[in-house]
Design a protein around this nucleic acid. Structure first.
Lengths: 290, 290
DNA sequence: GCTCGCCTGAAATTTTTGGTACAGCTTTTC
DNA sequence: GAAAAGCTGTACCAAAAATTTCAGGCGAGC
């Protein structure tokens, strides 16, 4: 318990705890700073030095000395630490409120997984800008547009799912394989009137990104369905629809992407009902005939 | 303008909600800023202008124009608002988890759809026989088995989704096209050690049914993922996993099927972690190499 | 096809903020 | 009671941040 040299601080605890523990060794004005910070933790520290000093009734230099004593190289670093701590803390209640705790059979694993997926769906809807959704629906309901769907390793299946529905609702759609060798010759036909709906979630896939960049360069309207951290495609996309994808698994969940697709299909179907209905009936007749 | 005197907090709509609502009037770069902020709300806005701009892939002036449009006189005022909102939100512990249930704009259509899908997922989990789920997981975790996935018009995409995951987790899997012409020559190789996972929901598809009957006749173990009314395939299937699929749309929702697939992937991955982990790592290395 | 207007980012400018030097004051010690 | 040591605040400076300017560019509309 000697030393105090500070070099072996493992910092497993929050800064607040450390301050409470070390507060006795502080000078009077540092102590006032500490009390103000702790009484309003951590928000009192997120303002400027001057504001903090004023609230604590001390001078700015004293505040600086305070944060220096805590081991930070400067006030900005101190604030950065507070923000990160806060962010981490806000994360946990959500991830923490999940633990099952009842019955330990195989069912609870499934039920827990389902709860997580449901949470994702809620969060997805919550964070989906309605205007963005509407805009994309309008885009896809426009019969003058040609629509292409593309996706990566796993999201490719979601893209196919979208394609198979829109093929019936509106026509003039296709699915683009993500291997560049397979789209190199097709992409040259993509231009201003085309819409490219791309699906890409983390471990963002280079070939899909390249496809979207090429399409955007040629004037196509790119719609991106991605995760909450946004694929780099967002840079060239006209519209972005983010979904939450974290699941208690080694894999991400695509349920949010699927939800977006199905909601779009429903929206476009009802918007274009006048033209979609005869289409669907005709297709149904063909299927029966075969 | 009156009240305020009494009961519950007035809860002035959060900045995040306002952004979602107004996002359509934004310019493209403002939209990017909005997406970055919303996807990391509110922490993405607590750094400096330069940092924010960099994360959003836009320039500092664009960020300034963004906050100006939101009605703030400058970036510091914007940050102050974020901090105050965050602080207020932290006061009420769980109160935040309350999804807003007011207003019935374009959002309600999407929200209503999502609620229906969520209801489906809940119903699916509750009606899924745990023993059946466990049995299927064991089957798919068995490395001596060969696994095939098949589906119909729309469910084919779900089958592909399953295949693309299991291909990485366990290997020795494939996807069978539903057109008989494409599987006639492949089905002769399907025998006792094969597992056929078929997806089929209402408007049950004749060719998928035929495929399953053929496979079953040759001794394969058929696993059926279907809707609550059960595809005719149920008669030849060893295991049946039903999902609820009714949505407020002209189309059925496949979210329940996807949930089952993802839960199975998670279960099999964790069961076979010893062998799956090196596989996944090796595949990852190959991907990086390419 | 051309012009007009809006969006955008590079660079310059201004403002703010964090940081430092130093002198005065308080407290401690002999 | 006087000197030394150590806090603390004022005044100042340097650095960085926010903001404005301006010119290029892209797209809408004629």
């Amino acid at each position: 318990m000697q030393d105090v040299s500070g070099l072996t601080a493992p910092e497993p605890q929050s800064l607040a705890e450390r301050i409470r523990f070390e507060i006795e060794q502080f000078t009077p004005s540092e102590r006032r700073a500490a009390h103000v910070l702790l009484s309003h933790y951590p928000f009192a520290g997120l303002d400027t030095v001057a504001e903090f000093a004023s609230r604590a009734g001390i001078s700015a230099p004293s505040v600086l000395r305070f944060v220096t004593r805590l081991g930070f190289s400067g006030f900005p670093e101190f604030q950065k630490h507070l923000r990160e701590e806060l962010e981490a803390q806000m994360q946990s209640p959500i991830a923490k409120a999940r633990p099952d705790a009842r019955e330990g059979s195989g069912r609870s694993a499934l039920a827990g997984f389902a709860e997580a997926v449901i949470g994702n769906l809620r969060a997805t809807v919550e964070n989906l800008p309605p205007a963005e959704f509407e805009a994309v629906a309008s885009l896809l309901a426009d019969p003058r547009r040609r629509v292409h769907f593309a996706g990566g390793r796993f999201t490719g299946a979601i893209a196919r799912y979208a394609e198979s529905h829109f093929r019936i609702v509106r026509g003039d759609v296709d699915f683009i394989e993500s291997q560049p060798a397979l789209w190199r010759d097709r992409v040259i036909e993509i231009g201003r009137r085309d819409v490219l709906v791309a699906f890409d979630i983390r471990r963002y896939q280079d070939d899909v990104i390249a496809l979207c960049e090429t399409a955007a360069r040629q004037g196509a309207t790119v719609v991106l369905v991605t995760d909450q951290w946004l694929s780099p495609i967002a840079r060239v996309a006209r519209h972005v629809l983010p979904a939450h994808i974290v699941a208690p698994s080694n894999w991400d969940s695509s349920a949010g992407l699927l939800l977006i697709v199905e909601a779009l299909v429903a929206a476009v179907t009802s918007r274009t009902w006048e033209t979609a209905r005869p289409r669907m009936e005709a297709i149904e007749r063909l299927r029966k005939g075969s």
